[in-house]
Amino acid sequence: MADVTYREALRLALDEELARDPNVFLMGEEIGRFEGSYKVTAGLWKKWGPKRVRETPISEEGFVGAGVGAAMLGLRPVVEIMTVNFILVAMDMVVNHAAKVSQMFGGKVKVPMVIRTPGGAGAQLTAQHSQSLEVFFAHTPGLKVVSPASPADAYGLLKSAIRDDDPVLFMENLVLYNLTGPLDTTAGDGAIPIGVAKVVREGGDITIVSHSYTVRRCLTVADRLAQSGIEAEVIDLRSLRPLDVDTVIESVRKTSRCLVAEEGWATFGISAEIAARVHRACFDDLDAPVERVGSAEVPMPYAKSLELAAMPLEEKIEAAARGLLAECGVL
C-alpha cells in the first residue's frame, strides 16, 4: 500500500474513470496544457487528448451549463471549477438547473455530472479566494455534496461521484492537495459509497465531527486531548448531502458530548445542521449542548496575523473541546 498525495489520488481516479467509460470527459479552465491550476489533471490532456480533457474559456456559467446539457444526453462530464469562489457566477446553472432537471421534468432525464472544486483558506488568498461554500450546495435538494479528507477517500468518492446519476459537488481543499496518505489500489476498484461517514479515531469521552481539511485539525486536537487523558472520537462526515446522521448519533450516544468544527462560517452552517440533528436525537444523552467552531464571521483578511485569527485552527478547536468538557465537569 503506497502513500500518495490527495492530488495524486484524484488524478488516478480521473485517469481510471476516463479509461473505464468513454462517456466520461473532463472540462474546465486550464486543465489541459496548463495541467490544472492546482495540477490535479497534470498529464491527462497529453494522455487523453482534447476531446476527453476539454479546455474552456473563463465562462463558468457557460461551461457548467454545457456540462448539464452534455449530461442530459448521457455523457458524464467532470467539470473543474478552479476554486469554489468562482462557482458563484455559475450558481444559476448548479442550483436552478442541474439540481432541478430530474424532478422538474418528471424523472425523464438525468444529470450525471460532477463538479470538482477546492475551497479553503490559509495561504493569504484573501476575501475572494478563501471561502468554504459547500453549505450552499448541501442546502439544495437535487444535489449531492461530498468532501473527502484523505487521499483514499478522495480516490474512492470521486469514482462513486462520476458513476452517480445525479449532479455531485465534489469539494476539495487547497491545503489537502499536498497531504499524503495510504491508498490501496489492489483491493477491488476502490469506489467508496456516497453518504457514509467514517469514524477516523475512536474514543469514548467526546465526539468531534468535521469534514474536509478540518478533520486533520481535529485529529491533532484529539492527540493533544489524549495527553490530558481524554479520548476523543473523531468523525469525518465525508458526505454532506446525503448526510450520515446515524454515525454521528451513534457516537454521541456513547460519548454524551459533541463538538462540530468546520472551516466555513458556522452560522447556518454544517455545524448548525449537525447540532440540530444531535439535539433532537440525543437530547437525553447529552451532558451539555453541542458546541461549534467555524471561521470568524468576516470576509477573510489578507494580513497573516488576521488570517490566522479568523481561521478555525487547532487551538480554537481544542479550546472549544476543553470548554465543553469543563462544562460537563470533566477536565
Binding site: 424523472g107 438525468k110 445525479d166 450520515d244 446522521v245 440533528r277 433532537r280
Partner: peptide, 21 residues
C-alpha cells in the same frame, strides 16, 4: 419525493440521513 434524485443508489445513501431529520 419522486425523482428528486435519479440514481438507483440514492435511497440507500439517504437512509442514513433520516435520524432526527
Amino acid at each position: 419525493y419522486d425523482n428528486v434524485y435519479g440514481d438507483p443508489g440514492t435511497a440507500a445513501q439517504f437512509a442514513r440521513m433520516d435520524t432526527a431529520g
